[in-house]
Amino acid sequence: MKLVFFDARIWRYIVSAISKVIEEGVFVVDPEEGFLFRAMDPSHVIMLNMRFPRDSFEVFEVDSKVELGVNFEDVAKVLRRASKEDKLEITSDGNTVSFAFIGKGYRKFTLPLLDITAEELPEPQLEFKAIVKVMSDVYRDAIKDVELIGDVIRFIASQDEFKVVSSSDIGEAEIIYTRESGSIIEMEVEDTQQASYTLEYFSDLSGAARVADTITIKFSSDMPALIEHELQQGAKFSFLIAPRVD
């Protein structure tokens, strides 16, 4: 197996985010589908989903499905060495997986594969009554703002505006985006929708937004939320999080 992706830093931030939520897991490399990962955190509050389609790679040499069991913190440590303009090469011999940076030189790091099996998780079938698409920096700023106040994040969407709110004994943070403000790219909402979630997960995974072009937030009142990160070359990273019930 040999894969080459044009920007190692995208993988650096995505895997770093995953490592803050899940300790170990299995990357699946499928000859047709591409490079895949789907798993739930130990508490079953959140499900992560990553997909880099076959066509997103400069080199994609895989004869049959390959499963790569890894410790995400170990992989994240290696990928933190990615420099600007480095390409990422991923190879495996069945016992180890290697990550190499192709740039100013060739730097290769090899890790043992773990004997674990990929979780069989079905694609969630949910209908969302609020869909809000924003630029990634708008999303990241909102997370940073509410982090100052509380440990719960609340989304409130209506026909004309989208609010991100958090409150605690310290006080309240309220960030309001309107269609006229220019921060919202697209918004479709039925009536008014609002739901609360544990902020810690959003904070842990916010690093992934650094390499996303846009973020789409999908939710319904007191229902799970799906946060989709649109990456370059048609790749995607998303997480589905259960609502918080106080």
Score class of each variant (00 low, 15 high):
F101P: 01
G34I: 03
R107E: 15
V211S: 03
A76K: 08
V28M: 03
F237R: 05
S238V: 03
V59N: 05
E174S: 11
S98D: 09
Y197D: 01
F239P: 06
S168F: 09
F35R: 02
G25Q: 10
L226I: 05
D7S: 07
E61C: 01
I184V: 11
E24C: 01
V165C: 01
V15C: 04
T198F: 02
M47F: 09
I170K: 14
I176T: 14
L199S: 02
T216R: 03
L205K: 14
M187E: 11
D74R: 13
D246S: 12
L88V: 12
E67S: 13
L88K: 03
L240F: 08
V189W: 05
I18D: 01
L36G: 11
D41H: 03
L199W: 10
I46L: 15
A235L: 10
T198E: 02
L79R: 14
L226M: 11
V29S: 09
L79D: 02
G105K: 13
M40S: 07
L3H: 07
G25R: 04
H229W: 02
V29M: 10
Q193C: 03
D145Q: 08
G171H: 10
Q232C: 02
Y197V: 00
T91Y: 00
G182R: 04
V152C: 01
D74N: 13
I227G: 09
A17Y: 00
R80G: 00
T198K: 15
R179A: 01
R38H: 04
I175K: 04
L113S: 05
E85S: 10
K87T: 01
G105M: 11
G207I: 04
L88I: 14
V66D: 14
P42D: 11
M1G: 13
T96A: 02
P112H: 00
I241A: 14
H229L: 03
M187N: 04
S167C: 00
I215C: 04
E67N: 15
Q232E: 15
I156E: 14
A39V: 08
E67A: 02
I131N: 08
D222T: 07
D222L: 07
L121F: 07
Y139G: 00
E24V: 07
L88T: 08
Q194G: 07
E123F: 09
S181D: 15
F60N: 10
G69T: 11
T117S: 14
E127N: 12
F5W: 06
V211Q: 10
